[in-house]
Design a protein around this nucleic acid. Sequence first.
DNA 1: TGCTCACAAACATACCGCTGGTATGTATTA
DNA 2: TAATACATACCAGCGGTATGTTTGTGAGCA
Lengths: 216, 216
Amino acid sequence: MARNKYPEETYQKILDVSLQLFMTKGYDKTSLNDIINQLGGLTKGAIYYHFNSKEDILIAVINQLCNSHNARMYEIAKEENLTAAQKLEKMYSFSLADDKQEKVFSITPNLLDNPTFLAYYIKTLYTDIIPHFIVPLMKEGVEDGSIRTKYPEELGDLIMFLSDVWMNPLILEMTPGKISQKILLFNELIEPFGLHLLDQSAIKRMEDFIRFSKRE
Amino acid sequence: MARNKYPEETYQKILDVSLQLFMTKGYDKTSLNDIINQLGGLTKGAIYYHFNSKEDILIAVINQLCNSHNARMYEIAKEENLTAAQKLEKMYSFSLADDKQEKVFSITPNLLDNPTFLAYYIKTLYTDIIPHFIVPLMKEGVEDGSIRTKYPEELGDLIMFLSDVWMNPLILEMTPGKISQKILLFNELIEPFGLHLLDQSAIKRMEDFIRFSKRE
DNA sequence: TGCTCACAAACATACCGCTGGTATGTATTA
DNA sequence: TAATACATACCAGCGGTATGTTTGTGAGCA
Protein backbone atom coordinates (compact mmCIF):
# COMPACT_ATOMS: atom_id res chain seq x y z
CA MET A 1 0.00 0.00 0.00
CA ALA A 2 2.69 2.46 -0.90
CA ARG A 3 2.01 5.80 -2.50
CA ASN A 4 -1.63 6.78 -2.43
CA LYS A 5 -2.64 8.79 -5.47
CA TYR A 6 -4.42 11.27 -3.18
CA PRO A 7 -2.16 11.69 -0.14
CA GLU A 8 -4.50 14.23 1.44
CA GLU A 9 -6.92 11.34 1.98
CA THR A 10 -4.28 9.64 4.07
CA TYR A 11 -3.61 12.91 5.90
CA GLN A 12 -7.30 13.32 6.67
CA LYS A 13 -7.68 9.70 7.69
CA ILE A 14 -4.94 10.13 10.27
CA LEU A 15 -6.64 13.24 11.61
CA ASP A 16 -10.04 11.54 11.80
CA VAL A 17 -8.72 8.50 13.64
CA SER A 18 -6.61 10.65 15.95
CA LEU A 19 -9.51 12.95 16.82
CA GLN A 20 -11.69 9.97 17.70
CA LEU A 21 -8.97 8.47 19.90
CA PHE A 22 -7.85 11.73 21.51
CA MET A 23 -11.42 12.41 22.57
CA THR A 24 -12.32 8.95 23.82
CA LYS A 25 -9.03 7.78 25.36
CA GLY A 26 -7.35 11.14 25.86
CA TYR A 27 -4.26 12.41 24.09
CA ASP A 28 -1.71 11.17 26.60
CA LYS A 29 -3.13 7.68 26.80
CA THR A 30 -3.42 7.31 23.04
CA SER A 31 -0.29 5.70 21.64
CA LEU A 32 0.84 5.88 18.05
CA ASN A 33 0.13 2.16 17.81
CA ASP A 34 -3.47 2.84 18.81
CA ILE A 35 -3.73 5.24 15.89
CA ILE A 36 -1.96 2.89 13.48
CA ASN A 37 -4.24 0.01 14.41
CA GLN A 38 -7.28 2.00 13.22
CA LEU A 39 -5.63 3.26 10.07
CA GLY A 40 -6.53 0.24 7.96
CA GLY A 41 -3.15 -1.06 6.88
CA LEU A 42 -1.16 2.14 7.04
CA THR A 43 1.93 2.16 9.25
CA LYS A 44 4.08 4.49 11.26
CA GLY A 45 5.89 5.60 8.12
CA ALA A 46 2.70 7.19 6.81
CA ILE A 47 2.19 9.13 10.02
CA TYR A 48 5.73 10.49 10.16
CA TYR A 49 5.60 11.42 6.52
CA HIS A 50 2.62 13.70 7.09
CA PHE A 51 3.41 14.84 10.64
CA ASN A 52 6.56 15.66 12.56
CA SER A 53 5.43 14.34 15.93
CA LYS A 54 2.48 13.11 17.93
CA GLU A 55 2.04 16.64 19.27
CA ASP A 56 1.96 17.90 15.70
CA ILE A 57 -1.08 15.68 15.08
CA LEU A 58 -2.83 17.16 18.10
CA ILE A 59 -2.27 20.69 16.85
CA ALA A 60 -3.64 19.81 13.43
CA VAL A 61 -6.64 18.10 15.00
CA ILE A 62 -7.52 21.11 17.13
CA ASN A 63 -6.98 23.55 14.29
CA GLN A 64 -9.33 21.60 12.06
CA LEU A 65 -11.85 21.44 14.89
CA CYS A 66 -11.80 25.21 15.21
CA ASN A 67 -11.54 26.20 11.58
CA SER A 68 -15.05 25.63 10.31
CA HIS A 69 -16.45 27.19 13.44
CA ASN A 70 -14.16 30.18 13.15
CA ALA A 71 -15.13 30.71 9.52
CA ARG A 72 -18.75 31.11 10.59
CA MET A 73 -17.72 33.48 13.38
CA TYR A 74 -15.84 35.55 10.85
CA GLU A 75 -18.90 35.75 8.62
CA ILE A 76 -21.04 36.96 11.48
CA ALA A 77 -18.39 39.47 12.51
CA LYS A 78 -18.45 41.21 9.14
CA GLU A 79 -22.22 41.33 8.79
CA GLU A 80 -23.59 44.85 8.50
CA ASN A 81 -26.57 46.54 10.10
CA LEU A 82 -25.83 44.82 13.40
CA THR A 83 -24.33 46.26 16.56
CA ALA A 84 -21.36 44.43 18.01
CA ALA A 85 -23.51 43.25 20.90
CA GLN A 86 -25.99 41.77 18.46
CA LYS A 87 -23.20 40.03 16.55
CA LEU A 88 -21.93 38.51 19.76
CA GLU A 89 -25.42 37.37 20.57
CA LYS A 90 -25.69 35.75 17.17
CA MET A 91 -22.35 34.02 17.63
CA TYR A 92 -23.46 32.53 20.91
CA SER A 93 -26.72 31.17 19.57
CA PHE A 94 -24.84 29.71 16.62
CA SER A 95 -22.25 28.06 18.82
CA LEU A 96 -24.91 26.44 20.92
CA ALA A 97 -26.64 25.09 17.83
CA ASP A 98 -23.49 23.61 16.32
CA ASP A 99 -24.44 19.95 16.02
CA LYS A 100 -21.08 18.94 14.64
CA GLN A 101 -19.17 20.14 17.68
CA GLU A 102 -21.84 18.67 19.90
CA LYS A 103 -21.37 15.21 18.40
CA VAL A 104 -17.59 15.43 18.65
CA PHE A 105 -17.65 16.45 22.25
CA SER A 106 -20.38 14.12 23.39
CA ILE A 107 -17.96 11.19 23.23
CA THR A 108 -15.30 12.73 25.42
CA PRO A 109 -14.80 12.21 29.14
CA ASN A 110 -13.85 15.09 31.43
CA LEU A 111 -11.17 17.17 29.77
CA LEU A 112 -9.35 17.49 33.10
CA ASP A 113 -8.47 13.84 32.49
CA ASN A 114 -7.18 14.86 29.06
CA PRO A 115 -4.82 17.59 30.23
CA THR A 116 -2.64 18.05 27.16
CA PHE A 117 -5.69 18.42 24.96
CA LEU A 118 -7.22 20.88 27.40
CA ALA A 119 -4.06 22.97 27.53
CA TYR A 120 -3.94 23.25 23.74
CA TYR A 121 -7.61 24.12 23.67
CA ILE A 122 -7.04 27.01 26.06
CA LYS A 123 -3.96 28.11 24.17
CA THR A 124 -5.95 28.21 20.94
CA LEU A 125 -8.53 30.32 22.73
CA TYR A 126 -5.87 32.87 23.60
CA THR A 127 -3.78 32.84 20.43
CA ASP A 128 -6.60 32.73 17.89
CA ILE A 129 -10.15 33.20 18.99
CA ILE A 130 -9.97 35.95 21.60
CA PRO A 131 -7.46 38.25 19.88
CA HIS A 132 -8.84 37.79 16.35
CA PHE A 133 -12.57 37.71 16.93
CA ILE A 134 -13.65 38.76 20.35
CA VAL A 135 -11.40 41.70 21.24
CA PRO A 136 -11.99 43.56 17.94
CA LEU A 137 -15.69 42.94 18.40
CA MET A 138 -15.65 44.34 21.92
CA LYS A 139 -13.85 47.46 20.75
CA GLU A 140 -16.38 47.82 17.96
CA GLY A 141 -19.10 47.51 20.58
CA VAL A 142 -17.63 50.29 22.66
CA GLU A 143 -17.52 52.52 19.59
CA ASP A 144 -21.06 51.81 18.39
CA GLY A 145 -22.31 52.17 21.96
CA SER A 146 -23.78 48.69 22.28
CA ILE A 147 -21.21 47.64 24.86
CA ARG A 148 -20.36 49.83 27.84
CA THR A 149 -17.02 49.22 29.50
CA LYS A 150 -13.67 50.83 30.24
CA TYR A 151 -11.90 47.51 29.62
CA PRO A 152 -13.03 46.07 26.27
CA GLU A 153 -10.05 43.73 25.89
CA GLU A 154 -10.35 42.26 29.35
CA LEU A 155 -14.12 42.01 29.13
CA GLY A 156 -13.87 40.02 25.91
CA ASP A 157 -11.25 37.81 27.48
CA LEU A 158 -13.39 37.28 30.55
CA ILE A 159 -16.58 36.47 28.69
CA MET A 160 -14.90 33.91 26.47
CA PHE A 161 -13.05 32.35 29.36
CA LEU A 162 -16.20 32.01 31.40
CA SER A 163 -18.34 30.60 28.63
CA ASP A 164 -15.71 28.31 27.09
CA VAL A 165 -14.06 27.07 30.26
CA TRP A 166 -16.01 27.89 33.41
CA MET A 167 -19.40 27.03 31.89
CA ASN A 168 -18.00 24.15 29.85
CA PRO A 169 -19.48 20.92 31.19
CA LEU A 170 -16.70 18.95 29.49
CA ILE A 171 -14.11 20.66 31.68
CA LEU A 172 -15.92 21.24 34.94
CA GLU A 173 -18.48 18.54 35.51
CA MET A 174 -21.93 19.89 36.27
CA THR A 175 -25.48 18.78 36.78
CA PRO A 176 -28.21 20.36 34.63
CA GLY A 177 -29.28 22.37 37.66
CA LYS A 178 -25.76 23.65 38.20
CA ILE A 179 -25.24 24.86 34.65
CA SER A 180 -28.50 26.79 34.68
CA GLN A 181 -27.49 28.52 37.90
CA LYS A 182 -24.12 29.36 36.40
CA ILE A 183 -25.72 30.83 33.30
CA LEU A 184 -28.11 32.91 35.36
CA LEU A 185 -25.21 34.31 37.37
CA PHE A 186 -23.29 34.89 34.13
CA ASN A 187 -26.21 36.87 32.74
CA GLU A 188 -26.36 38.96 35.88
CA LEU A 189 -22.63 39.63 35.61
CA ILE A 190 -22.61 40.85 32.02
CA GLU A 191 -25.88 42.74 32.15
CA PRO A 192 -24.28 46.00 33.37
CA PHE A 193 -22.18 46.03 30.19
CA GLY A 194 -25.22 45.89 27.95
CA LEU A 195 -24.84 42.24 27.04
CA HIS A 196 -27.57 39.59 26.93
CA LEU A 197 -26.04 36.48 25.47
CA LEU A 198 -27.82 33.42 26.85
CA ASP A 199 -31.60 33.24 27.01
CA GLN A 200 -33.93 30.61 28.41
CA SER A 201 -33.64 28.40 25.32
CA ALA A 202 -29.85 28.45 25.66
CA ILE A 203 -30.17 27.20 29.22
CA LYS A 204 -32.44 24.42 28.06
CA ARG A 205 -29.98 23.43 25.36
CA MET A 206 -27.09 23.25 27.80
CA GLU A 207 -29.12 21.22 30.26
CA ASP A 208 -30.11 18.80 27.54
CA PHE A 209 -26.54 18.46 26.41
CA ILE A 210 -25.43 17.47 29.89
CA ARG A 211 -28.28 15.02 30.27
CA PHE A 212 -27.44 13.52 26.89
CA SER A 213 -23.71 13.21 27.39
CA LYS A 214 -24.01 11.65 30.83
CA ARG A 215 -26.01 8.58 29.93
CA GLU A 216 -24.24 5.58 28.44
CA MET B 1 22.32 2.84 51.83
CA ALA B 2 19.49 0.56 52.76
CA ARG B 3 17.09 1.22 55.59
CA ASN B 4 17.16 4.83 56.73
CA LYS B 5 16.41 5.22 60.40
CA TYR B 6 14.01 8.03 59.57
CA PRO B 7 12.18 7.01 56.38
CA GLU B 8 10.04 10.15 56.41
CA GLU B 9 13.20 12.08 55.58
CA THR B 10 13.52 10.02 52.43
CA TYR B 11 9.83 10.54 51.70
CA GLN B 12 10.20 14.28 52.11
CA LYS B 13 13.39 14.36 50.06
CA ILE B 14 11.57 12.72 47.16
CA LEU B 15 8.79 15.27 47.43
CA ASP B 16 11.21 18.22 47.57
CA VAL B 17 13.19 17.07 44.54
CA SER B 18 10.02 16.24 42.62
CA LEU B 19 8.42 19.60 43.36
CA GLN B 20 11.51 21.40 42.13
CA LEU B 21 11.61 19.36 38.93
CA PHE B 22 7.87 19.41 38.28
CA MET B 23 7.90 23.19 38.48
CA THR B 24 11.02 23.85 36.42
CA LYS B 25 10.81 21.10 33.78
CA GLY B 26 7.12 20.29 34.02
CA TYR B 27 5.58 17.04 35.24
CA ASP B 28 5.39 15.29 31.89
CA LYS B 29 8.95 16.08 30.92
CA THR B 30 10.36 15.05 34.27
CA SER B 31 11.42 11.40 34.17
CA LEU B 32 11.91 9.19 37.19
CA ASN B 33 15.60 9.15 36.34
CA ASP B 34 15.65 12.95 36.61
CA ILE B 35 14.28 12.63 40.12
CA ILE B 36 16.62 9.79 41.04
CA ASN B 37 19.66 11.74 39.84
CA GLN B 38 18.93 14.49 42.36
CA LEU B 39 18.16 12.13 45.21
CA GLY B 40 21.77 11.77 46.36
CA GLY B 41 22.39 8.05 46.00
CA LEU B 42 18.85 6.79 46.40
CA THR B 43 17.43 4.67 43.60
CA LYS B 44 14.15 3.72 42.00
CA GLY B 45 13.50 1.21 44.75
CA ALA B 46 13.21 4.00 47.30
CA ILE B 47 10.67 5.84 45.17
CA TYR B 48 8.45 2.86 44.58
CA TYR B 49 8.61 1.91 48.22
CA HIS B 50 7.14 5.26 49.25
CA PHE B 51 4.91 5.89 46.23
CA ASN B 52 2.81 3.75 43.95
CA SER B 53 3.42 5.67 40.75
CA LYS B 54 4.78 8.87 39.29
CA GLU B 55 1.28 10.32 39.36
CA ASP B 56 1.10 9.43 43.04
CA ILE B 57 4.11 11.67 43.65
CA LEU B 58 2.40 14.55 41.87
CA ILE B 59 -0.70 14.21 44.04
CA ALA B 60 1.40 14.21 47.20
CA VAL B 61 3.36 17.24 45.97
CA ILE B 62 0.22 19.27 45.27
CA ASN B 63 -1.42 18.24 48.52
CA GLN B 64 1.60 19.36 50.50
CA LEU B 65 1.67 22.61 48.55
CA CYS B 66 -1.94 23.31 49.49
CA ASN B 67 -1.99 22.05 53.04
CA SER B 68 -0.18 24.80 54.90
CA HIS B 69 -2.09 27.41 52.93
CA ASN B 70 -5.40 25.70 53.61
CA ALA B 71 -4.67 25.51 57.31
CA ARG B 72 -4.37 29.30 57.41
CA MET B 73 -7.57 29.67 55.40
CA TYR B 74 -9.34 27.46 57.89
CA GLU B 75 -8.12 29.59 60.77
CA ILE B 76 -9.42 32.73 59.15
CA ALA B 77 -12.74 31.07 58.37
CA LYS B 78 -13.44 30.31 62.01
CA GLU B 79 -12.46 33.71 63.35
CA GLU B 80 -15.27 35.51 65.13
CA ASN B 81 -16.45 39.11 64.99
CA LEU B 82 -15.94 39.20 61.23
CA THR B 83 -18.49 39.10 58.47
CA ALA B 84 -17.98 36.50 55.75
CA ALA B 85 -17.07 39.24 53.31
CA GLN B 86 -14.38 40.48 55.69
CA LYS B 87 -13.02 36.95 56.12
CA LEU B 88 -12.80 36.57 52.36
CA GLU B 89 -11.01 39.89 52.16
CA LYS B 90 -8.54 38.72 54.80
CA MET B 91 -7.96 35.47 52.93
CA TYR B 92 -7.14 37.34 49.75
CA SER B 93 -4.65 39.66 51.35
CA PHE B 94 -3.02 36.70 53.07
CA SER B 95 -2.76 34.71 49.86
CA LEU B 96 -1.10 37.60 48.12
CA ALA B 97 1.42 37.97 50.91
CA ASP B 98 2.36 34.29 50.99
CA ASP B 99 6.07 34.44 50.32
CA LYS B 100 6.49 30.67 50.36
CA GLN B 101 4.09 30.11 47.51
CA GLU B 102 5.59 33.06 45.70
CA LYS B 103 9.05 31.52 45.79
CA VAL B 104 7.76 28.13 44.67
CA PHE B 105 5.89 29.55 41.75
CA SER B 106 8.49 32.05 40.64
CA ILE B 107 10.60 29.24 39.18
CA THR B 108 7.88 27.78 37.02
CA PRO B 109 7.25 28.45 33.34
CA ASN B 110 3.73 28.82 31.97
CA LEU B 111 1.50 26.13 33.46
CA LEU B 112 -0.15 25.61 30.08
CA ASP B 113 3.16 23.95 29.19
CA ASN B 114 2.78 21.81 32.31
CA PRO B 115 -0.70 20.48 31.54
CA THR B 116 -0.89 17.53 33.90
CA PHE B 117 0.15 19.70 36.81
CA LEU B 118 -2.37 22.34 35.81
CA ALA B 119 -5.18 19.81 35.56
CA TYR B 120 -4.48 18.49 39.05
CA TYR B 121 -4.29 22.03 40.36
CA ILE B 122 -7.75 22.79 39.00
CA LYS B 123 -9.10 19.49 40.28
CA THR B 124 -7.82 20.30 43.76
CA LEU B 125 -9.55 23.64 43.50
CA TYR B 126 -12.87 21.93 42.85
CA THR B 127 -12.56 18.94 45.17
CA ASP B 128 -11.04 20.68 48.18
CA ILE B 129 -10.82 24.43 48.25
CA ILE B 130 -14.10 25.61 46.74
CA PRO B 131 -16.46 23.12 48.42
CA HIS B 132 -14.73 23.15 51.82
CA PHE B 133 -13.81 26.80 52.25
CA ILE B 134 -15.41 29.11 49.76
CA VAL B 135 -18.95 27.84 49.33
CA PRO B 136 -19.66 27.63 53.09
CA LEU B 137 -18.22 31.10 53.43
CA MET B 138 -20.45 32.47 50.69
CA LYS B 139 -23.52 30.96 52.31
CA GLU B 140 -22.44 32.45 55.62
CA GLY B 141 -22.11 35.79 53.86
CA VAL B 142 -25.63 35.59 52.51
CA GLU B 143 -26.92 34.89 55.99
CA ASP B 144 -25.00 37.63 57.75
CA GLY B 145 -25.94 40.04 54.98
CA SER B 146 -22.40 40.89 53.93
CA ILE B 147 -22.78 39.18 50.55
CA ARG B 148 -25.80 39.76 48.37
CA THR B 149 -26.58 37.10 45.76
CA LYS B 150 -29.17 34.53 44.76
CA TYR B 151 -26.41 32.09 43.77
CA PRO B 152 -23.88 31.77 46.62
CA GLU B 153 -22.42 28.47 45.44
CA GLU B 154 -21.87 29.64 41.88
CA LEU B 155 -20.56 33.01 42.98
CA GLY B 156 -17.94 31.37 45.19
CA ASP B 157 -17.01 29.06 42.35
CA LEU B 158 -16.75 31.99 39.95
CA ILE B 159 -14.66 34.17 42.20
CA MET B 160 -12.15 31.43 42.94
CA PHE B 161 -11.96 30.39 39.31
CA LEU B 162 -11.34 33.93 38.18
CA SER B 163 -8.72 34.76 40.77
CA ASP B 164 -6.92 31.41 40.74
CA VAL B 165 -7.04 30.72 37.02
CA TRP B 166 -8.09 33.72 34.93
CA MET B 167 -6.00 36.20 36.92
CA ASN B 168 -3.17 33.72 37.47
CA PRO B 169 -0.11 34.97 35.56
CA LEU B 170 1.41 31.48 35.73
CA ILE B 171 -1.44 30.10 33.65
CA LEU B 172 -2.36 32.96 31.34
CA GLU B 173 0.68 35.05 30.59
CA MET B 174 0.17 38.75 31.23
CA THR B 175 2.01 42.01 31.33
CA PRO B 176 1.85 44.11 34.50
CA GLY B 177 -0.53 46.45 32.71
CA LYS B 178 -2.80 43.59 31.72
CA ILE B 179 -3.13 42.15 35.21
CA SER B 180 -4.06 45.52 36.67
CA GLN B 181 -6.78 45.96 34.05
CA LYS B 182 -8.06 42.47 34.79
CA ILE B 183 -8.19 43.20 38.52
CA LEU B 184 -10.01 46.47 37.96
CA LEU B 185 -12.61 44.68 35.85
CA PHE B 186 -12.83 41.94 38.47
CA ASN B 187 -13.50 44.54 41.16
CA GLU B 188 -16.22 46.07 39.03
CA LEU B 189 -17.78 42.65 38.54
CA ILE B 190 -17.99 41.66 42.18
CA GLU B 191 -18.89 45.06 43.55
CA PRO B 192 -22.65 44.55 43.11
CA PHE B 193 -22.42 41.55 45.45
CA GLY B 194 -20.89 43.62 48.23
CA LEU B 195 -17.37 42.32 47.74
CA HIS B 196 -14.15 44.38 47.68
CA LEU B 197 -11.29 41.90 47.57
CA LEU B 198 -8.34 43.48 45.79
CA ASP B 199 -7.19 47.00 46.56
CA GLN B 200 -4.50 49.17 45.05
CA SER B 201 -1.73 47.49 47.02
CA ALA B 202 -2.87 44.09 45.74
CA ILE B 203 -2.56 45.35 42.19
CA LYS B 204 0.92 46.58 42.90
CA ARG B 205 1.89 43.25 44.39
CA MET B 206 0.64 41.34 41.37
CA GLU B 207 2.43 43.68 38.98
CA ASP B 208 5.65 43.27 40.92
CA PHE B 209 5.31 39.51 40.91
CA ILE B 210 5.01 39.47 37.13
CA ARG B 211 7.96 41.81 36.71
CA PHE B 212 9.99 39.65 39.08
CA SER B 213 9.16 36.30 37.55
CA LYS B 214 9.79 37.45 34.00
CA ARG B 215 13.42 38.47 34.32
CA GLU B 216 16.09 35.80 34.18
C1' DT C 1 19.17 -4.85 82.04
C1' DG C 2 21.53 -6.59 78.38
C1' DC C 3 21.91 -9.67 74.54
C1' DT C 4 20.30 -12.34 70.72
C1' DC C 5 17.89 -13.33 66.72
C1' DA C 6 14.04 -13.47 63.65
C1' DC C 7 11.69 -10.53 60.79
C1' DA C 8 9.90 -6.85 58.53
C1' DA C 9 11.10 -2.30 56.98
C1' DA C 10 13.77 0.38 53.71
C1' DC C 11 15.84 0.28 50.33
C1' DA C 12 19.04 -1.55 45.74
C1' DT C 13 19.36 -4.12 41.40
C1' DA C 14 17.98 -6.23 37.32
C1' DC C 15 14.73 -6.63 34.11
C1' DC C 16 10.41 -5.84 31.18
C1' DG C 17 7.10 -4.28 27.57
C1' DC C 18 6.01 -0.36 25.43
C1' DT C 19 6.60 4.39 23.94
C1' DG C 20 7.68 8.20 20.58
C1' DG C 21 10.99 8.86 17.19
C1' DT C 22 14.51 7.85 13.36
C1' DA C 23 17.06 5.78 9.57
C1' DT C 24 16.66 3.38 5.75
C1' DG C 25 14.46 0.66 2.22
C1' DT C 26 10.91 0.26 -1.58
C1' DA C 27 7.20 0.76 -4.66
C1' DT C 28 4.53 4.11 -7.30
C1' DT C 29 3.38 8.01 -9.96
C1' DA C 30 4.23 12.21 -12.32
C1' DT D 1 14.20 9.07 -13.58
C1' DA D 2 13.48 11.20 -9.61
C1' DA D 3 10.77 12.79 -6.10
C1' DT D 4 6.77 11.11 -3.54
C1' DA D 5 4.31 8.29 -0.34
C1' DC D 6 4.73 5.23 2.14
C1' DA D 7 6.74 0.33 4.80
C1' DT D 8 10.18 -1.85 7.75
C1' DA D 9 13.56 -2.30 11.15
C1' DC D 10 15.57 -0.42 14.82
C1' DC D 11 16.61 2.62 18.93
C1' DA D 12 17.13 4.88 23.61
C1' DG D 13 14.45 5.88 27.25
C1' DC D 14 10.17 5.56 29.75
C1' DG D 15 7.23 3.99 33.86
C1' DG D 16 6.68 -0.04 36.35
C1' DT D 17 7.75 -4.70 38.61
C1' DA D 18 9.97 -8.68 40.67
C1' DT D 19 13.36 -9.94 43.43
C1' DG D 20 17.50 -9.45 46.09
C1' DT D 21 20.04 -7.27 50.12
C1' DT D 22 20.89 -4.79 54.14
C1' DT D 23 19.66 -2.81 58.44
C1' DG D 24 16.91 -1.26 62.34
C1' DT D 25 13.82 -3.18 65.82
C1' DG D 26 11.26 -5.36 69.25
C1' DA D 27 10.07 -9.92 71.54
C1' DG D 28 12.06 -13.28 74.39
C1' DC D 29 15.37 -15.24 77.29
C1' DA D 30 19.16 -15.20 80.75
